[in-house]
Design a protein around this nucleic acid. Structure first.
Length: 339
DNA sequence: ATGTGAG
DNA sequence: ACTCACATA
C-alpha cells in the first residue's frame, strides 16, 4: 500500500493543486532522483492540503510556508489554464511513464527502474523477457503484479486470520497474534495483511529472537499448510511474503495472492507495536505530538518519560493499548476511530 | 560498509 | 523517521 498513495482527502478545496504537486514530487523522486525537490513539492502539497479554503492565486499560496516563488508560479499557471506545461511534457515522455510503471512492481524502486529503462526494458512484458535482470524480491513482485494492486476484502482477511491463529496455536498456544493495519481499524478492504506476533518467552531483556526461532517456526508451519505461497524476505523478527486461500478453502479456487507481513516483537513492547502498526499514520503523528507535550516520547517500541534534560528515561510498563492513552492523558480511541 | 527497497 | 532485510562491494 505504500507505493501508490492518495495522501490528500477528496474533500479538501485544493485537491487538484495537491494532485499536481504530488505528481511533480513523484517525478522528481523517481525520474530526476532529486530528493530535495521531491521534499519541496511534498511540503507544499501538505501545506495546501491543510489550508481550509480554496486558494485563489499563486500569490495567496506563497504566504503558506513551503510555497516559494517557483511553486507559486506553477499554481498561477494551473489556476489560469487548468494545466501545467511541465506536467504535460512529463506525461508525454515515454521514459518517464515507463519508470512510473516499473516502479509499481514490488521491489523495483526508482534506481532499478531507471537502470531497466536505460537497458530498454520498459513494459511488464519486457520484464517477463528479462527476468535474469531481477532479484528474488522483484521476481515475486512481477509474478503477482496485478494481484498486489488489488484490495483485500475484509471477509478474506477474517478467514486468513482464523487460519493463522489456528495453525500458530497448534504449534504453541502461548503465541499472541494480532492483525493490525487498516483491517484492525475496521476498514472494509485493506492493501495487505499485517500480523503482529509475540511470545511470553521473548522480551526485550531476556530471550533472543535468533536463538528462539519463534518467527521461523511460525513461517515454516504456514508454508507447510500452504497458506504462505512465496517469501520475499525472512529475518529473525520480520517476514515479508505472499499468502493465498486457494489451497485451503474449498469455495476459493481462483483467489488472489496477497501481501503478508509477520513481525515478531518482544512481549513487553507488544502494545506499543500494536498501536503503531494499527495507525493511521496521521493518528500516530498526532498521538506522538500529544505525548511529547505531556512529557513523553512514544515510538514503535516504548513509551518513555522525557525530563527537563530532554533525555528519555526508562520505558514505562505497558500492558494494554489503553495504558498508553492513560499515561499521556489522551482520550482513548477505538481502532475504528483512528482514521 | 553501503545502497536500495519496503513499510 | 526509523528499522529491517537484502544484495552488493
Amino acid at each position: 500500500m505504500s507505493k501508490r498513495k492518495a495522501p490528500f482527502s477528496e474533500d479538501n478545496p485544493n485537491h487538484d493543486l495537491c494532485d499536481m504537486l504530488t505528481e511533480l514530487a513523484d517525478y522528481e523522486r523517481n525520474v530526476s532522483r532529486n530528493i530535495y525537490k521531491y521534499n519541496a513539492y511534498r511540503n507544499a502539497a501538505t501545506a495546501l492540503a491543510g489550508h481550509p479554503t480554496r486558494i485563489q492565486s499563486g500569490e495567496e499560496a506563497r504566504k503558506l510556508n513551503g510555497v516559494g516563488a517557483k511553486i507559486s508560479k506553477k499554481i498561477d499557471e494551473f489556476l489560469q489554464t487548468g494545466k501545467l506545461q511541465k506536467l504535460e511534457k512529463i506525461r508525454d515522455d515515454d521514459t518517464n511513464t515507463a519508470i512510473g510503471l516499473l516502479t509499481r512492481v514490488s521491489g523495483i524502486g526508482p534506481a532499478k527502474a531507471k537502470q531497466l529503462v536505460d537497458a530498454g526494458v520498459k513494459t511488464i512484458e519486457d520484464l517477463h523477457r528479462h527476468e535474469d535482470k531481477l532479484n528474488s524480491h522483484q521476481l515475486v513482485g512481477l509474478k503477482y503484479f496485478e494481484d498486489f494492486e488489488k484490495k483485500i476484502p475484509r471477509h478474506e482477511i477474517e478467514q486468513t486470520e482464523e487460519i493463522i491463529k489456528k495453525e500458530i496455536h497448534e504449534l504453541d498456544p502461548e503465541y499472541l497474534i494480532t492483525i493490525c493495519g487498516s483491517y484492525r481499524r475496521g476498514q472494509l478492504e485493506s492493501g495487505d495483511i499485517d500480523v503482529l506476533l509475540t511470545h511470553p518467552s521473548y522480551t526485550s531483556t531476556d530471550g533472543n529472537a535468533r536463538r528462539s526461532q519463534l518467527l521461523k517456526k511460525v513461517v515454516n508451519s504456514l508454508v507447510s499448510k500452504k497458506l504462505i505461497i512465496d517469501t520475499i524476505s525472512l529475518g529473525d523478527v520480520k517476514f515479508m511474503g505472499v499468502c493465498s486461500l486457494d489451497k485451503l478453502k474449498r469455495d476459493v479456487r481462483h483467489g488472489h495472492a496477497r501481501r503478508l507481513d509477520i513481525r515478531l516483537t518482544p512481549h513487553d513492547q507488544y502494545y506499543c507495536s500494536i498501536l503503531y502498526f494499527t495507525g493511521s499514520d496521521l493518528f500516530n503523528k498526532n498521538m506522538r505530538a500529544h505525548a511529547l507535550q505531556n512529557g513523553f516520547t512514544l515510538n514503535e517500541y516504548t513509551l518513555r518519560p522525557v525530563g527537563s534534560t530532554g533525555i528519555p528515561g526508562e520505558p514505562v510498563v505497558v500492558t494494554s493499548e489503553e495504558d498508553i492513552f492513560e499515561y499521556i492523558g489522551y482520550p482513548y480511541k477505538k481502532p475504528s476511530e483512528r482514521d
